[in-house]
Simulated assay, not measured.
Amino acid sequence: MSEPTISYKNHRFPPQIIARAVWLYFRFPLSLRLVEEMLLERGIVVSYETIRRCGRKFGAAYAKQLRRKKPSRKDIWHLDEVVISIGGRKHWLWRAVDQDGYVLDEIVQARRDTKAAKRLLVRLLKKQGLAPKRIVTDKLRSYGAARRDVMSAVGHRSHKGLNNRAENSHGHFENENE
């Protein structure tokens, strides 16, 4: 069964401009007005309200296309965790990002230990279907212990400065129902 293509019929702007505006808004933690300013710098006059409408109309379809990206044996996963507060209690949001900056998976756990890191890696392997070429993490030793147990053949780089892709993915959180 083939998926219906996105129709840009009766839109003022060409598909490339619509795609760029929606991509900027959803890919980076930018406001609608900042996206409007960025497009204006390129000579494209579009209102933030138009960007909002396009994001609402085309955003889900673009996200669906991005999610269909096939995992590759050449992938590099960047793993990181950040502390969040839920109901006044400390939890950890564990996140995996690929070399292109796309979030592969995220999981909230009460712990920050080897068992929690192992749970993330097992879940990633099930979801992706195959192991990456290498994983990049910060200096948390739990990643190394979990990797040895779950996927020992995969390379591992543990360096604070190399893990910026995962660190940058911890942008602001938005409610999808808004």
Rank of each mutant, 00 (worst) to 15 (best):
A21L: 05
E167H: 11
F28E: 15
V22P: 00
L40F: 10
R52F: 02
S47Q: 10
V46F: 08
L79P: 14
K127R: 13
S72R: 06
D105M: 08
L66Y: 05
L125Y: 15
G88H: 13
V154F: 04
W23P: 00
D100G: 13
S169G: 13
Y8H: 13
V150L: 08
V122Y: 06
A116Y: 03
V22H: 13
D100K: 04
V83T: 15
H156S: 03
R68T: 04
E41V: 08
R42D: 14
G59M: 06
P4V: 09
A60Q: 10
V83E: 08
R147E: 09
D98Y: 14
W92A: 11
G59H: 05
N168T: 07
S7T: 13
L66E: 03
I51Q: 08
A19R: 09
E176A: 14
Y102K: 07
A146Y: 03
R67V: 00
P4I: 07
K70R: 14
R73Y: 03
A21Y: 12
R95K: 02
W23L: 11
L34W: 12
I51E: 01
K139W: 12
A117F: 07
S2H: 09
H159N: 13
V108S: 12
H156M: 10
A145G: 00
P132H: 04
E81C: 13
P132L: 05
H159G: 11
D100C: 02
R147P: 03
H91R: 11
S7V: 14
L140R: 05
